[in-house]
Design a protein around this nucleic acid. Structure first.
Lengths: 334, 334
DNA sequence: GACATCTTGTTAACCGCTTAAGTTAACCGC
DNA sequence: GCGGTTAACTTAAGCGGTTAACAAGATGTC
């Protein structure tokens, strides 16, 4: 015995109005019927407390009004923030966000994408994709995929909101260079296994150009582990003068480790982040970081996604986010 | 023309094996069929790349394998953290979390709950409910509701994970009292309109008992606004010596405002939080706060929810979370 | 050997809605 | 007054599964 709570069905409304179910269906979606019939139907529906069953509707129409949202790593506080914003935006457009966390694992990411596709979401909104994977083709084949992030995921996407990572990285390294730093440790959120990320490449290029010595250190986004890694970096014979973190979360780890080591950020160590999470502003010293405009990103991502669902051939729109340095107190002249 | 990507259907598997769709349906769920038939069906299904359509299944079976998760206010960083954890846990039990954010508005919360019910989620997992509402009855009537938080939401829930807020509040105020504080400002995350929250009552009771002067100040969870409120509190003729924040997010706002006012937290101002968000540990000074054990909360909440879905009459299980003070550097003797 | 009992399948009726195609009657120009 | 539209519905065929009810051969019992 299933739940005995019967909702009123379309048929009941039809019977109540003496119309066919089809007529009612049309009427409720404002199609094909006379103004007065529509009125009559609406009234009856309201009286009976009718609410269309989304499941049945999905089965018949093929659309679920759900968007699969894939976060690269929800340990990253900024991504939590982004997901919250995206959820809000999608809801505002009458879509539900099914948020899944890949936990920084590219393979898991792809697996979850498949799961979401199988779950019949209308579209996929993917945060930082690992572009190496070509299993994505099979997915982009089945539904529109919108990418947000530095993702290279090309062609197949129905839209992209891209961070100009190269520009951001250049800006930060030039900034540090301008402050006199010559040796910089870069904390990247990547697992060691992931090869040749474009971001790494950009760092090396910029460093080469500026004559900077850089050291790339992979680091988990989880704050406890990030602190541990930072501790190891700062301890003993650390020969650099600045730490550039690929996410503000990682920078927080550096703050923690620095405090433990009695180093003062913004005096003994310079730190730069990469997201502009709200917390960065209230730290002491406030974190110098790169602002990508989270709010607009969420809005644009949601917009592109909804457009893609509605079949608007948006000529594969690409939105480019420019980096804005938020210069605060954590990086200083050396 | 809808998407032309046909998935393989049950019928195709049936034809391929020469069985009826019913037999295949049973076979794939390991019921009623001989071991060898099951094997044959599985093989065929695998070859054809068959994957049951969750929508069709939901329509027929009445279960969507989706859980509606209602966050009280996702501006609160700790709640973001909690939602991420709950999403993970639910996924581990083969359920998808449909996370919606009430943004601190009790009415919106109820409206979203209705939306989720109409969306046919199998169960509702509600974070901080406003218990005054009795529209909840209609919802709890239609599906199992699991509550997590200080929620009073009674009877109708299928399970609860409760924070012993009274104990937490007592612990904090006693702690502050022990440090010599006699005048405490309390930042509450509530909109001014919300009347008589139990938390407020607990504060007044404890304050009365301890002979503490307290001032309750409502404050938005959004960090920028929280900072603004904190600024106003600390400015000029602030006569208290400590700020007790009902969420770590709010405490971060105090850190920000204090820095602006050149007050040093842990020297000029004592601050206590209430969540133990990871960031609290890396602040300078690290935030003294109350740890509720987020990880276990997520696990228990997910467990209760899944149990409720599976119809286990869990005798309305209630899990009580005890507060654990994380004494760090932000509150000092005065 | 007759009858009850499993086992393993099959048939077909839904689940509640959408939508292509068909029907009817009113309306139109000429 | 006749073919051609058009507006407003109705019919009915799905969408892709689940599941109660029934069938028939295999097995068991005495």
């Amino acid at each position: 015995m299933a739940r005995p709570n019967k909702r009123t069905t379309l048929r009941e409304v039809a019977e109540a109005t003496g119309l066919s179910t089809a007529a009612v269906s049309y009427a409720l979606r404002g199609k094909q019927v006379s103004k007065e019939t529509e009125e009559r139907v609406r009234k009856a529906a309201a009286e009976l407390g009718y609410e269309a069953d989304p499941i049945a509707r999905a089965l018949a129409s093929g659309r679920t009004s759900m968007v699969g949202v894939l976060a690269g790593d929800l340990q990253d506080l900024w991504q939590q923030q982004l997901m919250a914003a995206i959820g809000r935006e999608l809801l505002a457009s009458d879509h539900y966000a099914l948020i899944l966390d890949a936990g920084g694992d590219p393979e898991r990411e792809l697996a979850l994408a498949k799961q979401l596709r199988d779950q019949r979401v209308d579209a996929l909104l993917v945060s930082p994709v690992n572009p190496s994977e070509e299993g994505w083709a099979a997915i982009a084949d089945a539904l529109p995929v919108v990418a947000v992030g530095d993702s290279l995921s090309r062609a197949r996407t129905a839209g992209q909101v891209i961070f100009d990572n190269r520009a951001g990285i250049d800006a930060v390294l030039e900034y540090l260079h301008g402050l006199g730093h010559r040796r910089v440790t870069v904390l990247t959120p990547t697992r060691p296994s992931t090869p040749g990320r474009p971001a790494d490449v950009y760092v090396r290029e910029a460093a080469g150009r500026l004559g900077l010595w850089v050291e790339l250190v992979p680091c988990p986004q989880e704050l406890g582990e990030a602190t541990a890694v930072a501790r190891r970096v700062l301890d003993g014979d650390w020969s650099a003068t600045a730490v550039f973190c690929f996410s503000d979360s990682l920078a927080y780890g550096v703050y923690g480790a620095a405090a433990e080591a009695s180093l003062e950020v913004g005096r003994d160590v310079s730190v730069v982040g990469f997201d502009d999470h709200p917390v960065s502003r209230v730290l002491t010293p406030p974190l110098t970081t790169v602002d990508w405009g989270l709010a607009e990103i969420a809005v644009e991502a949601a917009r592109l996604t909804v457009a893609a669902i509605e079949g608007k051939r948006v000529r594969r729109k690409r939105i480019l986010c420019a980096p804005r340095m938020s210069e605060r107190g954590s990086a200083v002249r050396v």
